[in-house]
């Protein structure tokens, strides 16, 4: 998929390969590369999942693999959690049971 110049995108790059990582970090972390994600506008048209360059909000030029076009915020309030409902009922009953019995 070809993405237009000036599109707002997210890119990802590798800052350090596993061999370049610091000594004295946990083994599970040391085995993985250090990755970086930045958002901005494409300076040229680019293929999705190919190398691209962006200009960030502060005007920096950064290169990386084009990962996402018009990235959306995916965090939310999550799924229903029964334990929270139980906490709510427990607290209200412990606090107000005297009053409710009157």
């Amino acid at each position: 998929m070809l993405v237009d110049k000036n599109s707002f995108v997210r890119i990802r790059s590798y800052v350090l390969s596993p061999e370049q990582r610091n000594e004295n970090i946990p083994e599970d972390t040391a085995k993985k590369p250090l990755k970086m994600w930045v958002k901005g506008r494409l300076t040229h048209e680019a293929e999705l999942f190919e190398e691209a360059e962006i200009i960030t909000a502060t005007g920096r030029r950064v290169k990386g693999i084009l990962k996402e076009v018009e990235p959306k915020y995916k965090h939310s309030y999550g799924e229903y959690v029964e334990e929270i409902q139980l906490l709510r009922e427990l607290i209200l009953s412990e606090m107000w049971s005297d009053r409710d019995e009157e």
């Binding site: 610091n22 970090i25 972390t29 250090l34 970086m36 901005g40």
Partner: peptide, 14 residues
């Protein structure tokens, strides 16, 4: 501008 990294203390170098 937000620069996001994966886990690791080398964030300091970036």
């Amino acid at each position: 501008e937000v620069v996001q990294l994966s886990v690791g203390p080398e964030l300091f170098t970036t």
